[in-house]
Amino acid sequence: MPIIDMSTLSPVGEFGSKAWGEACSEASVKILEAADIPADTNWAFTEDYTHPPARLMEGERTHAGYYIMVKDGKVSAGDGIPDAARALPGFHVRMPWAYLCNQSGALYGREGQQRRSGHEAELMAAIVAHTGNDNPFNFIINAEGKPNAFLDPVGPWPSAVGSALGEGGEDGNGLHNIAATLQSDSPEFADLPVTDMRVPIFGEMTDDQKQFFLDLCGIGR
């Protein structure tokens, strides 16, 4: 049975805000502390959202994002991207805030995740075609010579961690849906065309909207 009761959750802050990251972290710790995590588990999750709106960086924050860390089986999590978490193998991603923000508020299970990924691939292809740049977000180049938002050291999700954070995902629970429920809407997307998964539709934007969105993503800065 899932640890978090979804009926008790409500929006606490925008995607990438300190309040939202701390709430996601708190839920993650509750879930993982209730799980049977082997004592030799060393793994971390970090999501670093670049080019966030200035309002999200108040209080001398240096990163918009949050982390989950399991060190020798002990769980910690919080706002920010600490070096200790980044040093562990795991799931580490650095992407523009605007590219992920709106659709991160959509509730879904496995099929919805696949549709979101498909819509995001279309968004990326449209941006690449519009800018004429195969790497518009200046991602690192991986061993295959392709831009990649995922950062080293990469490590697979430990089964105990993945199972715990994903529990109930097909029924509206799980870490993604918890984070989506805690997220409040950001005004930048109020007038942009989006898919049913809330992914911006670049091809349906006006010229001004396209430039606005590219600026939000930090392209050209």
Rank of each mutant, 00 (worst) to 15 (best):
E26N: 10
A27L: 02
A27V: 01
S28V: 01
S28F: 02
V29T: 02
V29K: 14
V29M: 14
I37T: 07
P38W: 03
P38V: 06
W43P: 00
W43Q: 01
A44K: 03
F45K: 01
T46F: 04
E47L: 09
D48S: 06
Y49R: 00
T50I: 08
H51D: 14
P52L: 04
P52R: 02
R55N: 12
M57D: 02
R61M: 06
G65D: 07
Y66W: 13
I68A: 10
M69Y: 04
V70S: 01
V70D: 00
K74F: 10
V75L: 07
A77L: 05
P82M: 12
D83H: 12
D83I: 12
D83Q: 15
A84T: 15
A85G: 04
A87T: 05
G90T: 09
H92G: 03
H92I: 01
V93S: 06
M95K: 10
M95T: 15
W97E: 03
W97S: 04
Q103A: 15
S104I: 02
S104M: 08
G105T: 06
G105Y: 03
Y108I: 11
R110E: 13
R110S: 14
R110I: 05
G112S: 07
Q113A: 15
Q113K: 12
Q114N: 10
Q114I: 08
Q114H: 08
R115E: 04
R115L: 08
R116Q: 09
G118H: 12
G118N: 14
H119W: 03
E122N: 14
L123S: 00
M124A: 14
A125Q: 15
G132A: 11
D134G: 08
P136H: 01
N138H: 12
N138F: 10
I141Q: 08
A143P: 09
A143K: 15
K146W: 09
P147H: 07
A149N: 05
A149P: 00
F150N: 07
F150I: 10
L151A: 03
V154Y: 03
V154Q: 05
P156R: 05
G162W: 00
S163F: 08
A164F: 00
E167K: 09
G168A: 08
G169Y: 00
E170A: 14
